[in-house]
């Protein structure tokens, strides 16, 4: 029995795959160091992230998998739900051990699961691209805070870079406590933790930091939202299916009316 631990990074996880093959010692468990419980049985293998080794595993996968399957593996990492390490490992192992391509073999349960995770994470990514609402600050920054179900911030950055190339913006993940900041040239990942604030306030803008027109445009947007609606066609079930309640917190049109 082998218990692998790693530093929680994607590269770290790929290094685990490398080490397991190197030792021909297949993991019973894979856990991030800070969560791992000492085990009475079996051997614990502490893996140190090694970019070189991680890269060799990645290149090996790249040779045998399509871009979309590689993406599925990365998305599974960002999914963060318990057991994701195991899934990635099993998937990689099947890929390396099969003489033929395993892609699209949905009769294998974990290939199907990785594909379903891909879909879930993709949907959350898409939702964040849709539901982010920037608020303009007095110094011209467009700021939004999110708390996605999965760790999709790294996935949405490109979309916003392309779209808002001529404005400074920042998106802050308040549940994972990090953000992306675009300064008109590059996007950097930043921690802007303010220990004075409670987790709920963390990353939330106060109205006195607003640009002078910010409230006005939020109000106009609410007015617009109320007036595109056709009351004769009201369909609350369909409405909720499209925007589940847990997303309402982002949406200025779902906040109390300013007017």
């Amino acid at each position: 029995m082998f218990h692998y631990t790693y530093d929680g990074s994607f590269e770290g996880l790929l290094t685990v795959v490398f080490e397991a093959y190197e030792r021909k010692a297949w993991p019973t468990t894979i856990e991030p160091e800070h969560l791992a419980q000492p085990s009475m049985f079996g051997e614990t293998v502490q893996v140190t992230t090694d970019e070189e080794k991680a890269n060799r595993v990645w290149q090996g996968l790249k040779k045998r998998l399509s871009a979309s399957a590689l993406e599925s593996l990365y998305y599974t990492y960002l999914w963060e739900q318990s057991g994701f390490e195991r899934l990635i490992f099993d998937y990689a192992r099947l890929v390396f051990d099969s003489p033929e391509s395993v892609e699209g073999n949905y009769t294998a349960p974990f290939i199907l699961q990785v594909q379903q995770i891909h879909k879930q994470v993709h949907r959350e990514k898409h939702r964040m691209e849709a539901f982010v609402r920037f608020q303009k600050t007095a110094d011209g920054l467009y700021y939004a805070s999110i708390a996605p179900d999965f760790n999709v911030l790294p996935l949405i950055v490109r979309h916003f870079e392309k779209r808002y190339a001529d404005q400074r913006w920042a998106i802050y993940d308040s549940s994972r406590r990090y953000g992306a900041y675009y300064d008109l040239q590059h996007t950097a990942f930043v921690q802007l933790e303010n220990p004075a604030l409670s987790p709920k306030q963390q990353g939330r803008l106060q109205t006195d930091q607003f640009d002078e027109n910010e409230t006005r445009y939020q109000m106009l947007w609410q007015v617009y939202f109320d007036h595109v609606n056709i009351p004769e066609r009201k369909n609350p079930k369909l409405h909720l299916r499209h925007i589940p309640k847990r997303y309402w917190k982002y949406l200025s049109e779902k906040q109390p009316r300013l007017l």
Partner: peptide, 25 residues
């Protein structure tokens, strides 16, 4: 967006919200 301007209209459109009758906004 090739001119470092504002916006990008490649590919799939996005529904940013939904009306109470369930239509895409």
């Amino acid at each position: 967006n090739e001119n470092k301007g504002l916006g990008n209209a490649e590919g799939m459109g996005i529904c940013h919200s939904y009306t109470e009758d369930g239509r895409c906004v």
